[in-house]
Computed example of a mutant assay.
Amino acid sequence: MKIQPKKEEPEIPTASMADIAFLLIVFFMLTTVFSANKGMEHILPPPDENPDQTEPDDAIYIRIFPSGQFTMDATSYLIEDVEKVYDYVNAKVQVNAKKPIIVDANPEARYGDMVAVLDQLKILSVDMKRELAITIPTPEERAMYQRMQQ
């Protein structure tokens, strides 16, 4: 009787497949470049050792609403008239160069409306060749300014 040798089926060795997959995952994690979204850049002024004491009513208060309107010192404008920010703030800053400008955007307001106002202030800053004192209020400051406006 003749014994026939067992014929083995060819197969792909998968014992090291998990190791290879792990190494590929580690490789891709280490070589992937994550891009961070950059928002608007603000250059903060250096700390002033002798800050000027200004009253809150001395500031220019610009409030932006969700309805596409904004107010400058209680005078209402449509966002299409955003160029008036330049003229109004220019006239006020010519009198007092360190007059603070408060830009209070309602959380429901469109982002583009706030950017349009800030663009006008940036253009004015470039034309005047000096930095303007622009600030965005905290919720506590916002409540204080709104009480003062009433």
Results as ranks from 00 to 15, higher is better:
M1V: 12
P5Y: 05
K7Y: 03
E9G: 04
P10G: 06
I12C: 02
P13I: 15
T14K: 13
T14E: 00
A15D: 06
D19P: 00
L23F: 10
L24R: 10
L24E: 02
V26R: 07
F28H: 08
L30H: 09
T31I: 11
T32V: 13
S35M: 11
G39R: 14
E41Q: 13
L44W: 07
P45G: 10
P46D: 07
N50R: 11
N50V: 09
P51V: 02
P51N: 03
D52I: 15
D52T: 15
D52V: 15
E55C: 12
D57W: 11
I60S: 04
I60T: 11
R63L: 05
I64H: 07
F65M: 11
F65W: 07
F65T: 06
F65S: 14
F70I: 03
M72H: 04
Y77L: 04
L78Y: 11
L78R: 14
I79R: 12
V82M: 00
V85I: 09
Y86M: 03
Y86H: 13
D87N: 07
K92Q: 11
K98P: 00
K98H: 09
P100F: 02
P100R: 12
I101A: 02
I101L: 02
I102W: 08
D104V: 10
D104G: 07
P107L: 08
E108A: 15
A109D: 00
Y111C: 02
G112A: 14
M114D: 02
V115R: 15
D119C: 08
Q120T: 04
L121M: 03
K122Y: 10
I123P: 01
S125C: 02
M128D: 02
L132F: 03
A133G: 01
I134K: 04
T135M: 09
P137E: 00
R142S: 08
A143E: 05
A143L: 09
R147I: 03
R147P: 03
R147Y: 05
Q149M: 14
Q149E: 08
Q150E: 06
Q150M: 12
